[in-house]
Write a protein that binds this DNA or RNA. Sequence first.
DNA 1: GACTTCTGTTACCGCAAGTAACACCTGGAG
DNA 2: CTCCAGGTGTTACTTGCGGTAACAGAAGTC
Lengths: 215, 215
Amino acid sequence: MDTTHTDEQQRSAAARRRRELLEAADRVVLRDGPQASMNAIAAEAGITKPILYRHFGDKGGLYRALAKRHTDALLSALRAALDAPAERRQRVEATLDTYLAAIEALPEVYRFLMHPAEDAHQPEQGFDVGRHSAPLLRRLGEELAMVIAERVDLGPGSEQLARVWGHGIVGMMHAAGDWWLGERPCSREQLVSSLADLLWGRLAAAGDRADGPGF
Amino acid sequence: MDTTHTDEQQRSAAARRRRELLEAADRVVLRDGPQASMNAIAAEAGITKPILYRHFGDKGGLYRALAKRHTDALLSALRAALDAPAERRQRVEATLDTYLAAIEALPEVYRFLMHPAEDAHQPEQGFDVGRHSAPLLRRLGEELAMVIAERVDLGPGSEQLARVWGHGIVGMMHAAGDWWLGERPCSREQLVSSLADLLWGRLAAAGDRADGPGF
DNA sequence: GACTTCTGTTACCGCAAGTAACACCTGGAG
DNA sequence: CTCCAGGTGTTACTTGCGGTAACAGAAGTC
């Protein structure tokens, strides 16, 4: 082609710019929390607001682009743990541990993805993360359901059972991880094995205590 | 004791007013979704903004008061199911069913408690529910942990195990319920028994499918 | 009648999302 | 060389929210 701007060059330039903007947004969000303003993000990127809006449409669009990066990274790590060649319990534990290690390593990213507007000292402006955290959990749940359905022999109604379990297990992992990240009541290994024990029916198998009719 | 305003009368009048305001806020939130504005709530109550602020401090205060009502109601229903005299599996199922019945009966309340800013067509102003949904789930998790710890014989480390399980089970129930409420893929009874099966270790007990190394 | 206290109001501030309108550069077309 | 097209970027604005003075009336107390 010619010496100058072809369409492809323009497109790749735009994509590169988009990546730069996303990285700037990432820095600001990780520094200021989820209530980072569009002005602040634009300033971090060295530009002004309307450019952000030209690239991402609105704040939700920017957020979605930002969340997709992290979400995809987490998902591929989980898939790897889930597909490793080992027996079931080990793989469940590895998957739980991968998730917990991820949220432990980058708690700001995690909080940004899952919790809207942490410290709203001023008004409550902030990324509407709640609306988008559901999609992440849903994706995880569906993904896990697929894996369960295609690997475990559950008899009739297996598909529905697998989906219920997929979402339920993801929710268990998420809630326990959220609580653990806040209080750090035990080591990661302990948490992993406790959760795996739960999934392995230890609650059902345990005996009642001396007092009361038992749980 | 005069003919008119004693302190107690004033206090009870203030409390009654507060209840009226909360009921108005409830109506607006349930009609307009979580992004209901303070102006709209004040208008519904037949007054103007500053009065709301005198009563509740700020928007978060109003939200907390609003959430506490629903949360307390849900919690007492769950406690009843959890404390019923029956064997463990039946009580687990009854508790799950109570929770699911509650969110099924009043999905708007549920969404308000759990999901921030549903339809932000305008900006993303809305109640910062995410910050407060965590407390609800935490309360549920801790409550369940107490029940488990005092009823089930778990041997050494039982307290930590019970807390992990409490939060994990609550998260499982929450995520599965959220997904079920959105997609309605099966009946409530089916969901309940599927989740109970999961807790009873059916995932661990199931065999591998013909292909692959098994999950 | 003055003083407090509770009710309520109007009018404003600050700040954030989002937009319109304008300015600049750079390369190709007549 | 000039004019146009499409990208970059800007300033300045609107709208709508949370939140807050500052003020006004009613009613009981001294």
